[in-house]
């Protein structure tokens, strides 16, 4: 088995396992609490509004925004890790049909794996920092993923079976 294929298959299955571990950890230890925080802060905001207390209502809505921001990114990271992992494995199975040399294939593989690992990670990092670094990382890694996938698709399209 050539190194490019090997990296895609092992990397893909390992990434799927990482995504599942993250999903199970989140479901068991954080998801229910997060949903309670989202619902509770929204209810609190409208209760304060009914009590004619706009300052407290605004404070509760800020808590709602923060809880929802974190929840959506946790779910996105879980979904993207597993989705991208399956794509890596599929590309690995078919990678001998990509009409490039071994060196180019290896470079593509590293690009695909890096994008698939870093993009969901950068989404998770956004829960720790609202600054520009995690967002820049998301843009860079998704661009890397799209570019390498487009080149791989071109490689598939130009492949002609030798028989």
């Amino acid at each position: 088995m050539n190194p490019a294929r090997c990296i895609l298959l092992v990397g893909g299955i390992a990434l799927a396992i990482l995504g599942m571990c993250h999903g199970i950890w989140y479901a068991v230890s954080a998801e229910h609490q997060a949903l309670d925080r989202i619902g509770g802060s929204l209810a609190s905001a409208f209760t304060h509004a009914a009590d004619r207390d706009p300052a407290q209502a605004s404070t509760s809505l800020v808590a709602y925004r923060e809880a929802k921001y974190v929840y959506e990114r946790q779910v996105d990271a879980h979904g993207h890790w597993i989705g991208l992992a399956m794509l890596l494995v599929l590309l690995g199975i078919a990678f001998e049909r990509v009409a490039f040399g071994e060196k180019e294939k290896l470079a593509l593989t590293i690009g695909l794996l890096t994008g698939a690992v870093v993009f969901p990670l950068s989404v998770l990092l956004q829960t720790f920092s609202h600054g520009p670094f995690p967002r820049a990382l998301s843009i860079g890694s998704s661009a890397l993923m799209i570019a390498t996938l487009a080149i791989t698709a071109f490689g598939f399209a130009t492949d002609r079976p030798s028989s």
């Binding site: 905001a45 409208f46 304060h48 509004a49 004619r52 207390d53 209502a57 809505l61 709602y64």
Partner: peptide
């Protein structure tokens, strides 16, 4: 999402 809900709550108050 935040600004609309904020408007809604503050307008209710």
């Amino acid at each position: 999402d935040y600004s609309i809900l904020s408007n809604m709550a503050l307008a209710s108050a």
